[in-house]
Design a binder for these strands. Structure first.
Lengths: 209, 209
DNA sequence: TTAAAATCGATTATCGATAATCGAAAATCG
DNA sequence: CGATTTTCGATTATCGATAATCGATTTTAA
């Protein structure tokens, strides 16, 4: 067994992170250190350390002596994140084009799944596969810093809010817009892929041009 | 006194952060919790919490039972950060152009200072004012998320390494390239400003096109 | 009766002690 | 003498206790 063990604090962080991401903890919800410690059968200190991680990751906010809450993401911040995402993915497409040229089978598989979900107006499935599509591109970009920033900006719960604004009736059109990106990447055309990617994010996420 | 007090852990974090940023702690240097606790006359727990912040900010790295070191930034990561920075600032210029139209006095003041430093081949002064110039733009973009990501990517110690690679003989030319951005912003021309900004970062930070 | 002061319980924040781990040095073995 | 095992000191990690703070409730004073 050569796996590196992780500290209790890291394990608590990852559990709390999972609960925040999957909606178990709602935006605004209070996280009580001693309750979490009791539930997880540890002491307060590792829980506090876990919360420091989450705070630095901007997923929770803490006020001295008042405790920690899951951070509420405003509409403004949603818009800001779409703006940032659009340029991160522009760069991602540029960098990934060489690697993905002629190698888009996985992208196609995800696109097929989200197009299927779009036709069935199934947001959750759409979201999962759309995100997987984008993740594949960002991973192919081979820029670790870019990928970790992208991951911190692109959270599925927030994407579902964006999808709700796009609306079910526009889901097929939104999914379709990804095909331009996919075909450009298949041809290794980073310039077209990056421009199309940025356009589709700006257009469908409702950004003013 | 209406100022919000901060916890000891936050204060320790900010002190350690300052020491990392100003080079007091060198890359690779070991941070010993109990020593820091003794120096700052606190107990170990707030120091550990402070280190969790710094770890999440990717400024230090920690292994269970082995301690914490200031993270060494590889050449690879430097390049990655320039790539990311180039698109963040592309977006920053686009968003800032409206606000900065006809309002570039502060930008000009900083540009004058870094040009003066470029002619004297003074890296440190160049760096400070070049960074201030960029910060003014990124603040004018009025996108908080973009700004905080930019801040986490753009660290002065790392910029000095980039300047060293640009070389003293190219400093004036590098500084001059900012003038195109400045004049475009003065005219409110976000498209030209963003394109020029991205070009100058890519060109002078040595990115393959 | 209303406003101000005091109290209280829940929670956060830190303390200092103890447990756990690691790597280097010392001891032991063949 | 080299290899292996054991010991030890420094440090990390967690524990459980105590101090500090907050907001709600109760008590007191006018």
């Amino acid at each position: 067994m050569a796996l590196k063990r992780s500290s209790t604090a890291v394990q608590v962080k990852e559990l709390l992170l999972e609960r925040i991401l999957n909606g178990t903890y709602k935006p605004g919800e209070r996280l009580i250190e001693l309750q979490i410690a009791e539930e997880l059968e540890t002491s307060q200190a590792p829980v506090r350390e876990a919360l420091r991680y989450l705070e630095a990751m901007r997923l929770v906010e803490t006020e001295p002596y008042k405790g920690t809450r899951v951070r509420v993401v405003t509409e403004r911040e949603l818009e800001e994140s779409s703006q940032v995402r659009s340029v991160l993915e522009q760069l991602g497409c540029e960098l990934a084009a060489v690697k993905l040229k002629g190698n888009c089978a996985e992208l196609r598989a995800e696109a097929e799944k989200f197009m299927h979900a779009a036709r069935k107006k199934d947001f959750a499935t759409y979201s999962a596969h759309d995100t997987a599509f984008h993740r594949l591109i960002m991973q192919a970009a081979d820029n670790q810093l870019l990928f970790s920033i992208w991951e911190s900006v692109v959270l599925e719960s927030r994407f579902l809010r964006i999808l709700a604004k796009i609306g079910q009736e526009n889901l097929v059109e939104f999914g379709d817009a990804h095909m331009v990106v996919l075909e450009a990447l298949e041809k290794g055309d980073g310039k077209t892929a990056s421009k199309s990617m940025r356009n589709l994010i700006c257009k469908f996420h409702g950004l003013k041009s």
